[in-house]
Amino acid sequence: MARNKRPVFLNLMQIHLPVTAWVSIAHRLSGLLLAFIMPIMIFPIGYSLVSVENFEHVRQILAQHCVLRMGLHILALTYLYHVFAGVRHLIMDCNIGLSRQAGKYSAWALIILFTPILFSVMYHLAFQEC
């Protein structure tokens, strides 16, 4: 098949992707992570609702295990990024900012908006949480 004879160039160090591509890839990756973690979260929620003992048990586990608290923070960050990138998509669905230049601007806006949140949560995790 002629289709399969196209040259493939996949040296990730040399491929230069535009900022919009990185934002889109990160949207996908964050979505994939959420898609596997979020459905599981119903089980601790259900467990904690059964009785006060169960509720306190979950609290205790979270208080004891720093890794779990870190995981929850990272999950929240992932969710927040996914929402920001998703809202950007929703705005584009309304035919706003569809040009290449506008897409680049909104991608940078997303990064500029998200970076301080990322760093403040990272700071919180590194110096206060654990």
Binding site: P39, I42, F43, G46, L49
Partner: peptide
């Protein structure tokens, strides 16, 4: 489906 059943169960 497992997650959905748990949510409805709650």
């Amino acid at each position: 489906m497992l997650s959905a059943i748990s949510a409805l169960h709650i």
